[in-house]
């Protein structure tokens, strides 16, 4: 099963400051360990929200709100995608990450197709198929 690990932003990450060399080293070591165990599928850091945007949906209206966004705790600054055998394994791996200072890192399981196979009606399945054919033609 796949998991997404969401790393929250901080005033430093929002200011575009790079972490200390020491932390980068520790994080590199941790990433290597994840990769060598065959756990890490992907992972990236994100630019500050000052370079991002939010789009607000209301009826037919679409309002674009430019960054930066203020509530640092709700800002995602990076993510990992892991392949683990169980939720417990993902937790064990996350416990080994080099975070500190009260940081809370969120672990979420990624939906598998089987997770919502039951909700997929034949009509939805067909729509899915049509979409695939269209995007296939456009590519």
């Amino acid at each position: 099963m796949r998991f997404m690990v969401l790393v929250p932003g901080s005033p430093e990450s929002e200011a575009g400051e790079m972490p200390s060399t020491e932390l980068i080293e520790e994080m590199t070591k941790y990433n290597e360990e994840l990769a060598k165990a065959g756990v890490m599928l992907a992972g990236d850091g994100l630019h500050p929200t000052a370079k991002g945007a939010r789009i607000r949906f209301e009826g037919d209206r679409r309002t674009v709100i430019d960054g930066p966004f203020t509530e640092a705790k709700e800002i995602v600054a990076g993510y990992w995608i892991w392949e683990c055998a169980s939720r417990e394994e993902a937790i064990e791996w996350l416990k080994r990450a080099p975070f500190d200072g009260g940081t809370e890192i969120e672990l979420r399981q990624i939906f598998d197709e089987e997770d919502f196979a039951e909700q997929l009606t034949p009509e939805l399945r067909e729509a899915h198929q049509r979409l695939a054919e269209q995007t296939g033609q456009q590519r």
Binding site: E32, K36, A37, G38, E83
Partner: peptide, 14 residues
């Protein structure tokens, strides 16, 4: 397949 992939990823790291 997942077990084999994990072994393969471990080997690629080694």
């Amino acid at each position: 397949c997942a077990d084999a992939l994990r072994l393969g990823r471990i080997l690629a790291g080694l």
